[in-house]
Nucleic acid binder design. Structure first.
Lengths: 192, 192
DNA sequence: ACCTGAACACCGTTCAAGT
DNA sequence: ACCTGAACACCGTTCAAGT
């Protein structure tokens, strides 16, 4: 089995491939500009395709959002890999969390998905999530071995903590305070 | 000035008063049962009134949610007052956070409002929020004076922390893990 | 295969008519 | 004053017709 949506299909026809890329670019642009309320019709128009073409690639709006979230998770993986190279074990974890927060700071569509509203569809992301999770687990374990982080912290806690920090970006419109929230969390990770 | 919606109006006619109460009861019931997707038509029908009557009291769906959130904030105030009576200063704070979390655990409509989606309308709640905030500030200060909580914690951090914990109730459908998140936060509040 | 857009469905909101 | 529900508006989704 594979979770790549295109793995077991013929490659797209050249024009269809172009259309798909334009759809994704337009979706990124309009979601960033207008938030998750950006309309399917507008995304299609912005991409220069009919609404039917958009629905041919993505059966629902949520499926389109899922694809964008998947891309973001791949970016998370890159960031995590970079942070694994940081010398201080605690520093590596702290920097990763901060950089993951920064990566998401302006992406309202992602933030809502992360908070899992209307039972967000995680299928198709599991593979990317697992890859990220492996790096996160190594970074956490290294910090624990160095005695710089509580021994009972689990890799599965990471998503939960980032979910909480991400939610903070919405709270009463005070989007910058997530850094303070992160500081509080980080303080809680030190061994007691 | 006053923030009470009914302060400077004549009391409602008896039948209108009854209708208002039925609308609120139905809204509580249907939001609890179906989440924030519960429909205005269904709420009106459940309350035994026409849709127009619902819109006479609440100009938008969001205004209806706001009223329910306001009631919840009053409940928060009661809980906070009770926790102020707890002997241990740190215990008072920890118990209040836990009980506030429990109060919200099954209320999806509130959770979404707390996360401030689509720029939730806080007007009409400010007074209740201020009352709650005063008690929270006292509980935090007491714990700080006792040296049981970091000196740099501010009362304004409280809402942010609870927002993060509340968001966790949605994350990947693992609604029970918010208690672990709370534990992490609480650990971070101890003086370093 | 892929593209198109008119049409449909759903649901929040309005408003003219009624008591 | 208050109540009602048919009608409207908006937007996600479908599908018959076209290349």
């Amino acid at each position: 089995v594979t979770t790549d949506i295109r793995a077991d299909t013929r490659p797209l026809r050249a024009d269809a491939r172009r259309n798909l890329e334009r759809i994704l670019a337009s979706a990124r642009a309009l979601f960033a500009e207008r938030g998750p309320g950006a309309q399917m019709e507008d995304i299609a128009a912005h991409a220069g395709v009919g609404i039917g073409t958009l629905y041919r690639r993505f059966p629902t709006k949520e499926a389109l959002v899922t694809e964008l979230v998947r891309e973001r998770f791949q970016e998370f993986g890159v960031i995590a890999a970079e942070c694994e190279g940081i010398e201080g074990p605690y520093d590596a974890l702290a920097t990763m969390m901060r950089r993951h927060g920064e990566a998401v700071e302006d992406d309202v569509a992602f933030q809502l998905a992360m908070m899992n509203l209307n039972e967000f569809e995680w299928e198709g992301i599991e593979q990317d999530k697992a890859a990220l999770n492996a790096v996160v687990a190594r970074i956490i374990e290294r910090a624990q071995s160095a005695g710089e982080v509580r021994a009972d912290l689990r890799a599965e806690d990471y998503g939960m903590m980032m979910c909480g920090i991400t939610a903070t970006m919405h709270f009463m419109g005070r989007s910058h305070e997530w850094r303070r929230h992160l500081d509080l969390i980080l303080a809680g990770l030190k061994p007691s």
